[in-house]
Nucleic acid binder design. Structure first.
Lengths: 142, 142
DNA sequence: TGTTATTTGAGAATGAATATCAATTCCTGA
DNA sequence: TCAGGAATTGATATTCATTCTCAAATAACA
């Protein structure tokens, strides 16, 4: 059992979930396509090439589970479907520039927002656990 | 014809749309409920009290149109439906703190982000037209 | 006021996501 | 190593927000 698989097994076991071939495979696909922002349907189509017995519901369930466990991050680009990407191990979040013409998504890291967040927490007595920043506009080519 | 109605008529006419009783009424409802973040369905239910012949599709169509015309802003709180609020006349955007427990939404204004946005535009050769910032976490009561 | 293109209402259609449930699979403890 | 029981899966039905369709109604303009 290779390292990635064992790691997944540990995370799952810690939370009382089982390691299944399907969960393993989906994580594999996500790893292979790191940097993409795939939808459940897209992931399903890729996964099917390696296990064409897999069900779409399983893909949805697994992505939901991975979200809970912090393995993937759920993204919303306002294009009528949820998208997913592997969550980095470090705490360094990145955010997105979304072209409203061609749909291109550019990633950027934030540093600035940490201070801002701290101020908000004090000002509103609100405990921030996550944030999502999206800038819409036109990319270089549009 | 009161002022608000005339204003709406002008905006619509400028863009080759007609002023209808339904459009007028929906704007009325949005104005009456300023500060709320209503979904199309919620708006439909309120509107129906004053015109119970109105169709849900008309509400959707009108909100879509108002979005195009910059009359309303479309919001997405990841609660499975689009929400709408009147766009302020000034350019001052506000953003949201969303409680992942009780769903409370707190608004805040941003100033800080203007500089950040300018840097992004230069750095990525990207022309920003809009941005959306959401912080998720726990509100005072949760 | 009549003409015409726009808009509307009703309901069908779409499509992403979730629920259902019997069959299968994983894990544990003997 | 294997059997039992609970978790998981696949197939498919279902849900629900949103969009589409099209005939009837309406607003704007001459």
């Amino acid at each position: 059992m290779e390292k990635k698989r064992q790691e997944l097994k540990n995370i799952l076991a810690t939370n009382n979930y089982k390691l299944t071939a399907q969960r393993d495979l989906i994580l594999q696909i996500l790893t292979d396509n790191e940097g993409e922002h795939l939808s459940a349907e897209e992931i399903y189509n890729i996964v099917k090439q390696q296990d064409n017995g897999i069900g779409l519901a399983t893909v949805y369930r697994t992505l939901e589970l991975f979200g809970e466990l912090g393995i993937v991050q759920q993204l919303n680009f306002d294009d009528n479907c949820r998208r997913y990407e592997l969550e980095g191990n470090n705490d360094e979040h990145h955010h997105h520039l979304i072209c409203i013409d061609c749909g291109t998504v550019i990633e950027f890291n934030d540093q600035i927002l940490e201070d801002f967040e701290a101020d908000l927490e004090k000002g509103y007595n609100f405990s921030v656990t996550e944030h999502s920043i999206k800038f819409y506009g036109y990319c270089e080519d549009c």
